[in-house]
């Protein structure tokens, strides 16, 4: 027995994994396969579909005046919505982290509602609420504000569907900020505004930017919630995702893919740039300049 034991101990670990967690090869393989099937393949399909067009055709489709107008509408509404979410999401995260109040758990859960709700349901609900006869619509009409079936409605729908991105990225960072940092700043004579501006905000900044960027890119592609409230008037309140849908309805798959590729490239570039900026910012904080 002692012989077999010593043999077992003496056996060299040739070709065997020395990692603590087993199954690295298998899990990586499954992940890559999944990424390829679910994410890369459709994107490839998009490229293949588009590549059937000549460069001139491609350019013609994506610079169609009505489409260009939809870019503008989409960009400014998405920007407004995500900036609004940056402010409101920060406030919401702040309240959820810093204060204790009855029903806090519930509010925390409700934040995720836009993710859980089918976007079409959200769109129909918002359209009903903001319509001239709706609860909010009536009040806003008195103020002379029209939301439903205008670009403002697009902003509302976009803000609604993407608010969780900001809250959920800012919240954990806010939780991690030690109360001592604020106390230290106050003991050094700083007023509240200065404490926020000089101590809290720089720590939250990367998370806010990420949240806003996610919210923005999500808004660029939002479809379901918007079409019910936007009114979809050509040149006024048509978003790019609607243009893609219209092309699909016309069975013009190539044109649809061409427009889609514009959205895709914009989103990817933005996310990539933000990632790059953020890693540099954080590297500085962690002292690995």
């Amino acid at each position: 027995m002692s012989q077999s034991a010593s043999r077992a101990i003496g056996r060299p670990l040739v070709g065997r994994s020395k990692r603590v967690l087993p199954g690295f090869g298998l899990s990586l393989g499954i992940s890559l396969l999944f990424v390829s099937l679910v994410l890369l393949l459709p994107v490839t399909g998009l490229v293949v579909e588009t590549s059937g067009m000549s460069w001139d055709q491609f350019w013609f489709v994506i610079t169609d005046p009505r489409v260009v107008e939809s870019y503008k509408v989409t960009l400014w509404t998405a920007l407004s919505a995500s900036l609004f979410n940056g402010l409101f999401g920060l406030l919401l995260a702040w309240v959820l982290v810093r204060y204790d109040f009855p029903g806090k758990r519930l509010v925390d859960a409700v934040v995720d509602l836009p993710f859980a709700l089918p976007t079409a349901v959200a769109g129909i609900t918002l359209a009903t609420l903001f319509a001239e006869t709706g609860w909010y619509g009536q009040l806003l009409a008195r103020l002379g504000l029209e939301v439903a079936f205008t670009p403002l409605g697009i902003v509302v729908a976009m803000a609604f569907t993407s608010i969780p991105f900001v809250v959920r990225t800012v919240q954990p960072v806010l939780e991690e900020i030690a109360p001592e940092d604020e106390e230290a700043a106050m003991s050094l004579g700083a007023r509240d505004a200065r404490v926020f501006r000089k101590v809290l905000f720089p720590a939250l900044w990367p998370a806010i930017v990420t949240g806003v960027a996610l919210s923005f890119t999500r808004s660029l592609g939002e479809f379901g919630a918007i079409i019910f409230i936007a009114g979809n008037t050509p040149y006024v309140s048509e978003v790019t995702s609607l243009m893609i849908f219209v092309r699909l309805q016309e069975y013009d798959y190539a044109a649809a893919s061409a427009i889609a590729s514009v959205v895709l490239i914009t989103s990817l570039t933005l996310l990539f740039l933000i990632n790059l900026w953020q890693s540099r910012y954080l590297r500085r904080l962690e002292g690995r300049r």
Binding site: A178, A184, S187, V199, P202, R284
Partner: peptide, 17 residues
């Protein structure tokens, strides 16, 4: 902030940015 004291924390509480 109005007491004009200096306070030193156990874990320094330096502003890392």
């Amino acid at each position: 902030r109005d007491r004009n004291i200096g306070f030193v924390f156990q874990h320094y509480a330096l502003f890392r940015h």
